[in-house]
Design a protein around this nucleic acid. Sequence first.
DNA 1: CCTTGTATTATTGTATACAATCCTTGGAGC
DNA 2: GCTCCAAGGATTGTATACAATAATACAAGG
Lengths: 225, 225
Amino acid sequence: MEEDVKEGASDKYSLRGRVFSRLREDILNGKYEEGIELREIAIGEELGVSRTPVREAFRQLELEGLIRIIPNKGAYVVGISDKDVRDIYILRSRLEGLAARWAVDHITKEQMEEMEENVYLAKFHIEKGHTEQMFELDNRFHELLYEASGSKILEHQLKDYHQYVLRIRKKTLSSATRGPQSNTEHEAILEAIKNKNHDDAERLAHEHMINAYKNMIDNGLIKPD
Amino acid sequence: MEEDVKEGASDKYSLRGRVFSRLREDILNGKYEEGIELREIAIGEELGVSRTPVREAFRQLELEGLIRIIPNKGAYVVGISDKDVRDIYILRSRLEGLAARWAVDHITKEQMEEMEENVYLAKFHIEKGHTEQMFELDNRFHELLYEASGSKILEHQLKDYHQYVLRIRKKTLSSATRGPQSNTEHEAILEAIKNKNHDDAERLAHEHMINAYKNMIDNGLIKPD
DNA sequence: CCTTGTATTATTGTATACAATCCTTGGAGC
DNA sequence: GCTCCAAGGATTGTATACAATAATACAAGG
């Protein structure tokens, strides 16, 4: 029964939690475009709730930087610029390297086993071209790495960024060449951790992000500098 | 009149903003100890407001990781463990290095001038042993560095961490030896940026954090590993 | 025609009322 | 005395009512 213990602030079973998750997803997926104004009543009616949970969700979204609230005026969708995406990938490249380094000493047997299963299963879905499953497995691999780092702070931070660039990542992975290469890199990172090689783990995780970054630019998903 | 444009989510002039700032400060300063339960009504009465702004502030504090809300039960202060502080310093060491590197290319003339003034003025207050001013100048130096990086993402992140370890930093800087050394290191970072030396800037900023970290441990302010 | 001031309206900010949930406490049964 | 359960109280979750603020429209004066 130890389910849902982590549930940071999403809280699936409260109205506020659902509103928050829904709005975040809608913003990241581009349903609400940048600059658009979100009205409490309208959102409330759309989701069938009153203003109270909507307001609380707004406050959280603001803290996440997804909307900007101007007092007594309104809430405006901020969106993510190409520069933000580039910056996040550079930050991630450094922090994921650190996560991999720390994971060498802190990964549990269960986490290791799930990682191995993850990489193995991914091969299958890549073969079949199941993009949705590839996406989910990629998500989970990185989350596992964050959790295995043994640092709540680092885990929290990387999960945030991971969420943040969700939209762009969906496009990236469906690319025919990046999918397989990404999983090969996952495998290499996993091996380094298994062999307790700190430097390799950090370097490979770092390069993994840099490669993803380059891929985005080469495929024109975001514009360079 | 371009004041208060950044005001992320604090919003000094709304009740919610004040409640949020106040509670964060009280938690970080140790007024509310770890594990203590915060009741909406009690906090509201203490600050003379109703539950609504208190609840909104709670939701934000949860997202910042300072309290943990268990649905239908209560809000509990999380506090910062020694491990969290150690982790943050390691993360900061890497990210501040990056900030310094980026600052080389993005710092404005005004920022550069304020940095120079900052380092110069700090010498005076160190000489006189004015700990409060030393603290403020140290704060400002780092904020300037973050702003000069030219990356909203990185700036936001580092400011967060900076706030987070506020309590411990106050103690550190008042140490007779660390104060002067810290400012000397600031000066070196500034020089590297001025000379447009990316590698030095990154290395020095990185080392600056590592030194602060070691100092904390050597002085027993937090326990090692 | 343009500017300015004011009234109206829409929207957010805050307080309060009501509903749902959890915890405590006390008593019945054994 | 111990266990279990039920009732009451306390606390959070949600909805709604009211207050404050900002946007808009329109009329009066230049």
